[in-house]
Amino acid sequence: MNSTSGLARICATESISLGRVLFSIGLSEPVESSMEGETMRSNDSIAGNPWPHDMVISIEEHDHALLRLLFVRDAWGLSPNGAPAVSGAIDVGASSRPNIVDLGDADARWRLEWRANWQRFDEHDRAVHALTGAKLRRLDAVSDEELIEKYSRMPSRYWDQGVDDRAFARWRDEQLKRSEQRRQLPLTEHPERRSLSALISAWECGLTNIVQLPYKGYFADRISRHCLVVSEAARFDAVLYGRALSAPPPETPPTGR
């Protein structure tokens, strides 16, 4: 999954795609569709629409890799590893940590992949740089399959064993169904409209990405100038969402972070 796949876009017309559930809030027509839904966009500025015509916010509501890691953490009985607990008990089905997997090693691997997954939402240098001779030689020594495994597949195959895929699918489907139900709400009751003033202020301070996760209770973390992480409970409570959006962005990290 690359840094843009699975991301939702909320445009001036308030065309919304949440995670992989893609839909519009009634001000645009679909311009593309797939088995995963429809993408609707419009570049028109509509009189009386309070949404700034040039404001684009990406919302990820059902990120597969992050949800998979949260599921595995519960299924294998791993440590919290710095991430909040999820809301409610997860039915992990027949999932269990394989006997051959050391608990300490699994915790360390989980923390490593959890941090790596967040890099997709982080700020980084997107410029194209020429490869040095040493880097080219290292790349030549690695097979295409190894490169895909290391840089493209998240989470890694390490988590394929000992996980009940049907149980994970049921847990993720529960969240997708809640999103589907909320699609039926009137436009004025959608979280971004109810907290539009705070959202605009956050956008003016650089916010472009919002990642929602099924954390327990209130959670909000502006992990960078461009990205805010919120719990589902926080996003769907107007007061809590306004508080989350009003949090100032962190200071610019030092060079070499």
Score class of each variant (00 low, 15 high):
A141F: 06
L176Y: 14
G133K: 04
V142M: 13
R115N: 07
P98E: 05
R182C: 07
D91N: 06
R170H: 09
E149I: 04
K135S: 13
R153A: 12
W110I: 03
V128Q: 11
V128N: 07
R194F: 07
R170F: 12
A198F: 10
R157G: 08
V128S: 12
E123N: 09
E113K: 00
R138S: 15
N99F: 12
D122G: 04
A106M: 05
F121R: 01
R126T: 15
R178S: 13
G104T: 08
S87T: 11
R183G: 09
Y151H: 06
D105W: 13
S152N: 09
R166I: 09
M154E: 00
R193S: 11
M154C: 00
L131H: 06
D102P: 01
L187A: 10
Y151N: 00
A127L: 14
P155C: 13
Q184D: 14
S179M: 10
F168K: 01
Q175R: 15
I148Y: 08
R111E: 06
W110S: 00
A85G: 01
E189L: 11
L112Y: 01
H190W: 10
R193I: 13
L131E: 07
A134V: 06
S195Y: 12
E189V: 05
I148W: 11
W118A: 02
F168E: 01
K135Q: 14
P155R: 05
A167S: 06
P98T: 02
H124I: 14
R157T: 07
D91Q: 08
A94L: 08
L187W: 12
L199G: 01
R170I: 10
R126S: 15
L112R: 01
G104L: 11
A134G: 04
I90N: 05
L196M: 09
R172V: 08
V163P: 02
S197C: 14
L131K: 03
W118M: 00
S195L: 15
S95N: 03
P191W: 02
R111K: 08
W171H: 06
R166N: 08
S96D: 10
L112C: 08
S152L: 05
A198L: 09
Y158R: 02
L187I: 13
R97M: 11
D144I: 11
A130V: 15
D107T: 02
A141I: 07
H129N: 12
A89T: 09
M154V: 03
P98Y: 03
D164A: 11
A106C: 07
L185C: 12
T132R: 07
R115Y: 06
Q161K: 13
G104Y: 13
D140K: 11
G104H: 08
Q161P: 07
D91Y: 03
S201Y: 10
W110F: 09
H129K: 10
S156Q: 00
Y158I: 00
I200L: 06
I100E: 14
I90E: 06
W114R: 01
K177I: 15
L136H: 11
F168V: 07
R183Y: 04
F121Q: 02
D125I: 03
Y151E: 03
V142R: 09
R111F: 02
R137W: 11
V86G: 00
D125T: 05
D91C: 07
W159Q: 01
G93S: 10
V128M: 15
R193F: 13
N117K: 04
N117R: 03
G104M: 09
G93M: 10
E113V: 01
W171R: 05
R194H: 05
A116G: 03
W159K: 03
D173G: 09
E146N: 03
